[in-house]
Design a binder for these strands. Structure first.
Length: 586
RNA sequence: GCGCCUGUAGCUCAAUUGGAUAGAGCGUUAGCCUCCGGAGCUAAAGGCUGUGGGUUCAAGCCCCGCCAGGCGCACCA
């Protein structure tokens, strides 16, 4: 058996990268006179029966090379001198090249991942800054289930980018400015219940907002008064300013409670108001370089040539709106952080708005070419009976969702772990309940529409958060038992043997972890990682059921315990990147 | 009307972004704790990938036309 590892493949690197590089060279060597456009990329095999990895790039070359695709693949294979990490290459079907890796190499990879603090996650973001704008709730409204996606997906991306070595600036761009404040101030003046405000500020502020909003709908003079209050606020009226500050203070206390429960934190929380002083200057700049002009009393940037309609940067009453604020925000972030990328996590409804202001930022030179602007949008959450809105009053508050999750988790714990102390059960129900909610969201593509149902959001078995937590806890338990029964032996003194087919599959899966993390981050899809972790847990559970660990003979026993340890490490690391805790006992 | 998105097992979702026999979970049915945690494991049943055409060695994925749904489209964010 060959355990040679080439210099170009350090213990912590992404296998797919190495194989692709190597294959590209093979392609180029075999057909030196042809422009192959970088052909030779390698992907994980679609079916384990075919091998570990596969390269499909021989087939599309049939035309340029004027050869049958299978023949191309055969030539490449026969021309290649295999590095030690590859056990065999095989041409199949119309021209697939199947790659089987060396067992020693695979087990070596798994061990490296187990030994590395960062599980060998590639540091491709070193030296780069990325700003991630997520969650962003509105002041004076409680967070509802519609906010969970931005918060949970954003937080996962935040973790993922940090893990890749990026310098991440997580910014909670809260809605603390805008026309709703006129309405809220009028509502506050006329309807506020100070006791309730004390008890649950956001709910009470929301109540008066809804009431005031409804009144504005039927009474034009009420609306005028709201506008007047807003103008007073924007002109720095002391009383309104004090109210406004108080609303923000109260709201943030409630937001922070929710964030603490969710285990989410931000580097900065700059509301829209932070950028207010810059808005007039932005509009001037846009006018100066000929992008903005007056139309129907407002200042607009006309993008209809590019099928992006018209973007208003200053309303006819002189006030600025969100597009202007967002442009100013980019300007501020670029100046302060020089980010390689700014990522926004919002719902699908804002696609046009993001296209517009990204476009304007480019044209105006506010976003340099070195700063990518990325809108990560997700499908709106709906209720089975349709969309929900604050005004219709059919919202489910985020707090009640979290409460319900914990209640359900607690019921199951009490049922299956009757002897667990009350305190521990309570604590555990938080990890399990919140984990279930996060996993339910993160395990599917962000773009899918989600129709909210309690059962789905709080699913506790099958492909769910608790399933993964359970797999982790069970490993911890086995390892603890091992330590008890064999206090003198140290599994890492024994080699990791891939005797069983499933054992090899698990080790290979482990070896794919670094590349999976990178892919999840760069494609903005935490579900890629969630999927991977579920697969891993499933393979492990199957293995666990099939073979004995503690009662296996010496050597096999230690090898299996070692594998357990690495699986546990990857599960725990992966789940933590998704923002999900892994208790050792559940 | 124009634009963006979605349509895959009864239900909820995958499918390595054009690859080989379309896979999981839930639910249904049948099994599995004299061994380490049954929140688990092993099986079975379940599909004309909305529909009609096209592109090529290869289409759930790309192009065109329909059908159905969601969301946007000038002073809300």
């Amino acid at each position: 058996m060959n355990s040679y590892v080439p210099e170009s493949l350090p213990p912590c690197s992404v296998i797919e990268d190495f194989l692709s590089d190597w294959f590209r060279k093979c392609f180029a060597k075999t057909f030196p006179d042809v422009d192959l456009a970088g052909a030779g990329s390698v992907a994980v095999a679609t079916n384990p029966d075919f091998g570990d990895f596969q390269c499909n790039d021989a087939m599309p070359l049939a035309k340029t090379l004027k050869m049958p695709p299978r023949k191309i693949a055969e030539q490449i294979v026969s021309n290649a001198s295999l590095p030690g990490v590859i056990e065999s290459l095989e041409v199949a079907g119309p021209g697939f090249i199947n790659i089987k890796l060396d067992d020693t190499f695979i087990s070596g990879r798994a061990v490296s991942i187990g030994n590395d603090e960062q599980s060998c996650i590639p540091q491709c973001g070193a030296g780069k800054t990325v700003v991630i704008d997520y969650s962003s709730p509105n002041v004076a409204k409680p967070m509802h289930i519609g906010h969970i996606r931005s918060t949970v997906i954003g937080a996962a991306l935040d973790n993922l980018y940090r893990a890749l070595g990026f310098n991440v600036v997580a910014d909670n761009h809260i809605g603390d400015w805008g026309t709703q404040f006129g309405i809220i101030i009028m509502g506050y003046r006329h309807f506020i219940d100070h006791e309730k405000l004390e008890e649950s500020p956001a709910a009470e502020l929301e109540r008066v907002y809804v009431k005031s909003y409804a009144k504005a709908g039927e009474d034009e003079s009420w609306m005028d008064k709201c506008r007047a209050e807003l103008v007073k606020l924007q002109n720095g009226d002391a009383e309104n300013l004090a109210l406004w500050k108080e609303f923000i203070r109260l709201s943030r206390i409630e937001f922070d409670k929710t964030y603490e429960r969710l285990g989410v934190s931000f580097d900065i929380t700059r509301g829209e108001s932070y950028y207010q002083d810059a808005l007039a200057g932005i509009v001037e700049r846009l006018k100066d370089n000929g992008l903005a002009r007056k139309s129907e009393g407002a200042i607009i940037v006309d993008l209809s040539d590019e099928d992006q309609g018209v973007c208003i940067v200053q309303k006819s009453d002189g006030a600025f709106n969100y597009a202007t604020t967002d442009i100013a925000t980019v300007d501020s972030r670029v100046t302060e952080f020089s980010p390689a990328r700014i990522i926004y996590v919002t719902d699908e409804r804002q696609q046009l708005h993001f296209k517009q202001f990204f476009n304007i930022c480019r044209k105006a030179g506010i976003a340099p070419e070195t700063t990518e602007l990325e809108h990560v949008w997700f499908g709106l959450m709906r209720l089975p009976e349709g969309t929900f809105s604050t005004r219709q009053g059919n919202v489910i508050k985020l707090e009640s969702l979290l409460d319900e999750a914990e209640v359900r988790a607690l019921a199951i714990i009490k049922d299956s772990r009757p002897n667990m102390p009350e305190e521990e059960a309570k604590e555990l129900s938080k990890h399990i309940g919140i984990g279930a909610i996060k996993y339910a969201d993160l395990s599917q593509d962000p773009r899918t529409l989600i129709t909210f149902t309690w059962d789905k959001a709080l699913s506790l078995d099958g492909n769910s958060g608790p399933y993964l937590q359970y797999a982790y806890a069970r490993i911890c338990s086995v390892m603890a038992k091992y330590k008890e029964q064999f206090p003198e032996t140290e599994p890492s003194d024994y080699p990791l043997i891939l005797g069983d087919e499933l054992e090899r599959a698990i080790a290979l899966k482990l070896a794919l972890f670094p590349g999976t993390v990178r892919k999840a981050a760069l494609t903005y899809r935490p579900c890629v990682l969630a999927d991977y972790l579920f697969d891993l847990a499933q393979a492990y559970s199957s293995f666990y059921q099939r073979v004995p660990f503690l009662k296996a003979e010496e050597g096999i026993r230690e090898s299996r315990i070692r594998l357990c340890g690495i699986v546990a490490g990857v599960l725990s690391k992966g789940l933590s990147l998704l923002g999900i805790n892994t208790p050792e006992r559940i």
